[in-house]
């Protein structure tokens, strides 16, 4: 059972932005969905995942890439060839 407070906390972690009206709706829906997810408690298995996987590596060599002006075309704001981001400090 999750509470509105839990959902608010998760919304904060996910940086999703949420208002009080939505909080009630999301909380109700999450409880229904998480109840359904409880079926996973019955999963039997040793937890060892044996997939036939291997890492894919390549040489660290320069290869053709996009032009700077093409990369910046979709950026919200840029300056001197750099993309501007909101302040982090």
């Amino acid at each position: 059972m999750v509470t509105e407070k839990d959902v608010e906390h998760i919304a904060g972690l996910a940086d999703i932005g949420i208002n009080t009206e939505e909080l009630g709706t999301f909380t109700g829906q999450f409880n229904a969905i998480l109840d359904y997810f409880d079926v996973l408690d019955r999963v039997q298995g040793d937890g060892v995942i044996t997939r036939d996987l291997s890492n894919v590596m390549r040489e660290d060599e320069v290869s053709p890439s996009l032009l700077l002006e093409d990369v910046l075309k979709n950026a919200g704001a840029h300056e001197d060839g750099f993309i501007k981001a909101p302040r982090v400090m």
């Binding site: 940086d15 932005g17 979709n74 950026a75 919200g76 981001a85 909101p86 302040r87």
Partner: peptide, 28 residues
Amino acid sequence: FDGVRYGHAADTKKSWHDAFREVRRAGF
């Protein structure tokens, strides 16, 4: 999808989390 490199542009005057939340709430 943070509104920095592409898509719905973030307000760069705001703090990172505020700008990020605003973009994602409006855009998703």
